[in-house]
């Protein structure tokens, strides 16, 4: 059995709206609260034990190029790029990282005017295809508001749905043992 991090030293770091955060500290759990239609993207390199979490609000940075520079995490396209760059700086390797996603809740809309949630999910799919990357696990769309946690010690990604008590595991254990 691998040693567990000491309780009391565990640190929840909030990844706020439009933020990207990375870590290689096993005591840290990165947390993106109340994603709603926003998209959470987690990456984790189980060898370097390094990874990060993105909390993006909109699919495409072309709506506001200045903002894409000041807040790359606001958009899925610039946010994913920023997430990978920041994780590389901590030693993550593109071919080892395990990618998971949650969020992208989509309201009941037949008008096509209110599809931010669906578009966020599609933007990620497109981006991964372009870069020939594989999505390991995902729980997107639907009518629920999710919170996403990435445990830096184990690489485990958990989801909590608003209104429900228990957390569920999205991506079990990314650590190679």
């Amino acid at each position: 059995m691998s040693p567990q991090p000491l309780t009391g030293f565990e640190q929840k770091i909030v990844v706020g709206l439009a933020e990207v955060k990375v870590s290689n500290d096993p005591h840290v759990t990165l947390s993106a609260y109340a994603l709603g239609s926003c998209l959470g993207v987690a990456i984790y390199d189980p060898v370097a034990r390094t990874g990060g979490l993105l909390h993006a609000m909109l699919p495409d940075s072309s709506v506001d190029p200045a903002r894409a520079i000041s807040h790359p995490g606001m958009f899925v396209d610039t946010g994913v790029a920023a997430l990978f760059r920041a994780a590389y700086a901590l030693g993550a390797d593109k071919h080892r990282v395990i990618i998971s996603t949650a969020g992208g809740a989509q309201i009941l809309d037949t008008s096509g005017c209110f599809e931010v949630g669906r578009q966020n999910g599609e933007a990620l799919t497109r981006l991964l295809r372009q870069h020939v990357l594989t999505l390991h696990a995902g729980q997107t769309g639907g009518l629920v508001n999710r919170t996403m946690y990435l445990n830096m010690a184990t690489g485990e990604v958990r989801i909590k749905i608003s209104g429900q008590g228990a957390e569920e595991i999205l991506c079990k254990n990314s650590t190679i043992t």
């Binding site: 709603g36 926003c38 309201i107 009941l108 096509g112 009518l143 629920v144 508001n145 608003s162 209104g163």
Partner: peptide, 25 residues
């Protein structure tokens, strides 16, 4: 209300069970 939802600020069971109304726009 819709923008609050799009920024994650809509909570509870089936939080996103609401309808798009293009008429509002």
């Amino acid at each position: 209300n819709m923008i609050a939802y799009f920024m994650g600020q809509g909570y509870g069971h089936q939080a996103f069970a609401l309808r798009g109304r293009a008429e509002a726009l």
